[in-house]
Design a protein around this nucleic acid. Structure first.
Lengths: 392, 392
DNA sequence: TGATTAGATGAAAGCGCTGTCAACGTGGAC
DNA sequence: GTCCACGTTGACAGCGCTTTCATCTAATCA
């Protein structure tokens, strides 16, 4: 090349290229020309040093004024503050994180963004971590273990201060990645026999059993079950259903409809119809989640099946709408907010504390069967047990 | 202190502290002792150099093998690949980003995580950006302009390659921050008179008008409106309603119920009752979103109000459940997926291209009124216009 | 066959920030 | 008046990676 750059020139040119390519092109205008005598006319994002120079102090002092203001005299602090304002300085969190090994981010991996449960859970996480100054780095695994694996690697590469996972069925590789990383990991939504690190959740099997038993306890015998998506959690709930049915001397196999398709309200109607076709005299149905339950409810209305007179319906998750449907929907309430709250609490403890894990690495938050209008005693049946069961 | 550390020792001690505090404590175990003769016994995350050393090449080569494999000979590539596997090396994305000024993240700011619309929109964004190797950095502004402002600063400090905003009502400070940053900004969900950068959306006012006109065109006169949250978008839809009513020579003011509370299904019922109390002979209602519409529908069922015979209901957003309710819900479909798709497309174009913005900085994606069973011709009314309107 | 070139690799210099330690001044204790 | 401790501030050396430029080798051409 004909251009034997000196470092300073090299920088300039490189900056120009980047300007063109990515960011800093021709947007800010004023404020550059007058000040900073030896500055190149090229725009670049303001740095700590720019602020320092303007305030007449060293960069370290500016850094301290930002991170630990109490270490800087009031006078300098004021001058620095002014300089920051004038330059509209925004710290480069990347550089800060690299230098300090603290990123202030929490990696979150959820299987779905649209599912009401996860939306709710996410918001709870967001709200729980925000006050601590943490941000969420969110990844969606779309219910695919491979995507979860990739997601974990991606999250780890961003040096999150903790990783929060939904579910406990990570691949072996995922596990190894996480264990090797040493980053605090919280598995939520379920209970693991062998947690990677900390585990906060509830038993999906027990919850499935409880939902089914609720219907059985009302005197129903022909109790069906529908499930969509069939991820690990849905499967466990189904297991709970099967178990409870067998326990009651019943065979649920013929009153079930499942699919791996994503759960929607429409699908609830479809699956319900499928069960109904096989078992026209169905008395009750346990829907794997509230969306399916909603679809079932509407399909009943469409067909003139009275709920709960002709059919009892129980959903799962107790989303907001359950208490407003007509009739209101009985549902198993899962501790989404509590999981998020506890997760945040524990993560902060680990980070702020000595890195030690809580005494109990596996926290069972239980669940609650919220009985409402959509389930009721079978006609002529004797009540067998409390219909309002709380387990934990 | 009694410990006059040398750099190497300093490093060691510091690492130990960090270990205790945050990450690398006592988790990985094996594989350190045998190899890397001069390595300290302390665990630390593997770096590029570790891989390079093991593969017997220089760090640069490893970097290239990772970023631009075609520049490295097949032989070395294989050796490096092996070393990476053996060390379970995970690149430090932070350092990479700092050095290259490319973070591969897209900052996304939404007002709500639980609202079905945004959940949907988020997933669409996620799906749209993932193939390009981008990740979303997600922040929730909770419908508060100040939080949005803080969120923007936070996002910018992470050097995202683009920022995607919902809505066009940023504060002056937010605007300035964004403009100064030079980062591509996409405002979505609405149309702006004066976009910050690129704007992809549809007219909320027009959509509100269209929904109202749909009801009017069916011959209804006593057309109510309910709205929750009352963020800028909801207000514009309300404006559209008012406008359309006036246009038809009607006064909507007495047939409206609004609140700033967050939108829920339950609230839909409440607001509907409020309108109904004021206007018992209500013929039709335009609900600001589908959740409210769902609540209204259930409340009708509860009160024995037949839909659409006694009351026509139109929702907004056309969430999945609209086509499965009983009766199915007429709703205004908004181009959430298309917005996300186009946003991703344009961002990639800007980043990959020369940084130039598309020719049109303001893209109107329109909306569609999807008529279903919940709205129908008023009894005895003459049809005034096509009930199936499409605007753009 | 020597000059030329393309391709592959490495050395060095940062990216913007923070941790560490040294240096400096000040006031109080003696 | 001297010494020490303390509270502030600054110099320096990285954090782990990429960019640039130089170097080296092997292949290509006249």
């Amino acid at each position: 090349m004909k251009n034997p750059d000196k470092p300073s020139q090299r920088r300039k040119r490189r900056s120009a290229e980047i300007d063109g390519l990515i960011l800093l092109d021709g947007v800010r205008g004023k404020e550059m020309s007058a000040r900073e005598p030896e500055e190149s006319p090229k725009r670049r994002r303001k740095t700590l040093s720019d602020v320092a120079q303007r305030a007449g102090v060293s960069p370290v002092t500016v850094s301290r004024a930002l991170r630990r203001p109490e270490m800087v005299s009031a006078d300098l602090r004021r001058r620095i503050e002014t300089a920051i304002q004038e330059l509209a300085y925004i710290p480069n969190q990347l550089a800060s994180a690299l230098a300090s090994s603290r990123t202030g981010t929490i990696g979150v991996l959820v299987p779905s963004l649209t599912n009401g449960v996860f939306a709710d859970y996410l918001r709870a996480l967001h709200d729980a971590f925000l006050p601590g100054g943490f941000q969420l780095l969110l990844l969606n695994s779309r219910y695919l273990p491979e995507e979860e694996e990739r997601g974990i690697a991606t999250l780890l590469s961003q040096n999150p201060e903790a990783i929060i996972l939904a579910g406990v069925d990570q691949t072996v590789r995922s596990r190894r990645l996480l264990e090797d990383s040493g980053v605090p990991v919280i598995q939520t939504m379920e209970l693991a026999d062998d947690p990677i690190d900390v585990n906060i959740g509830f038993s999906q099997i027990e919850a499935g059993k409880a939902a089914t038993r609720h219907l059985l306890s009302l005197g129903h015998r022909r109790v069906g079950h529908i499930a969509a998506r069939l991820d690990a959690r849905a499967r466990r709930r189904k297991e709970g259903y099967t178990h409870a049915m067998i326990e009651a001397g019943l065979d649920g196999q013929t009153m079930m409809a499942t699919t791996t398709r994503a759960s929607t309200v429409r699908l609830g109607a479809e699956l319900f119809v499928e069960v109904l076709t096989k078992t026209p005299d169905l008395e009750a149905i346990f829907c794997c989640n509230d969306d399916l339950a909603l679809g079932t409810l509407f399909e009943c209305q469409r067909r003139g099946i009275r709920v709960p007179e002709d059919l009892s319906i129980i959903g799962f998750n107790d989303l907001e709408f359950c208490s407003s449907t007509f009739p209101t929907l009985t549902s198993v309430a899962t501790p989404r907010h509590e999981m998020a709250r506890r997760a945040a609490e524990i993560v902060l403890e680990i980070i702020r504390g000595s890195g030690e894990r809580p005494a109990t690495r596996r926290i069972d938050l239980g669940f609650t069967v919220n009985q409402r209008e959509s389930t009721r005693l079978a006609t002529g049946a004797s009540r067998k047990a409390s219909a309002f069961a709380t387990l934990s």
